[in-house]
Simulated assay, not measured.
Amino acid sequence: MDVSAWLSLFKTGIAQTSIIEWIAVIFSIASVLLANRNNVLLYPTGIVSTLIFIYLMGKPSTGLYAEALLNFYYFIMSVYGWWRWQKNKENENAIAITHNSKKDWLITIAIATIGWAVFYLLLSHFTDSTVPAIDAFVSATACAGMWLLAKHKVENWVLLNISNIVAIPLLVYKGLVLTSALTVFLFIVAVLGYIRWSRLYELSHQKQQAA
């Protein structure tokens, strides 16, 4: 498919995008930009977008059931992250940005691997999903990334972008063109987020050493 055909598909998809999808996309953009700034408002904006995406992805006409479950997981983790932030807001170290430890990496890999297997089996045997393996992979790697985000780990951006790069063509295939464009944007923001969080970590580390 050439560039003009892709542009035509994109224009058609945008024209057919529902108001509710627009709302979900706008709140999702707000959430990821706030996450990039390490701002607590990333959680309430994320809660709004995830609730809408649960509905959109779970519709039989869309059939991305693992992504619907993923957005439910996002919802739970956003509530948890918001609660954790508020609980520890007076303790700077509790919300500090850090890198994965060896234990964190083992848990991250376990979440992604076990999550993929569970999602795939559920989608293959209990739904009419036409893309169980890919849908499961996108959701499992994103679950791992969201867990790391809630713990303020720099590597959350890596796992989220592994999920994003696979989700982009999947969403186009399913006709969610605006959401696929959002995912391209999220990919770029996640790259910038990784760079920013790495710098914030280095600054924090330098301050601790100087203290």
Rank of each mutant, 00 (worst) to 15 (best):
F10D: 15
K11A: 09
Q16K: 14
T17Q: 02
S18Q: 12
W22L: 10
V25L: 06
F27D: 04
L34C: 03
R37T: 06
N38V: 14
L42A: 13
T45N: 08
I52P: 00
F53N: 12
M57Y: 15
G58H: 05
K59R: 11
G63Y: 03
Y65L: 02
E67W: 10
A68E: 03
A68T: 04
F72N: 05
Y73E: 02
S78M: 10
R84L: 14
W85G: 04
K87W: 08
N88E: 05
E90D: 14
E92M: 10
E92H: 11
W105N: 10
L106P: 00
I107E: 03
T113S: 15
I114S: 09
I114A: 12
Y120L: 12
V131N: 15
V131F: 14
A133G: 08
I134D: 10
F137K: 04
C143I: 07
A144F: 02
G145H: 03
W147I: 00
L149A: 05
A150G: 07
V154S: 05
E155M: 06
V158W: 08
L160G: 15
A167D: 00
V172E: 11
K174A: 01
G175W: 03
L178W: 07
V184K: 07
I188M: 09
G193F: 05
W197Y: 02
W197L: 03
S198R: 15
S198M: 12
R199Y: 01
R199L: 00
R199V: 00
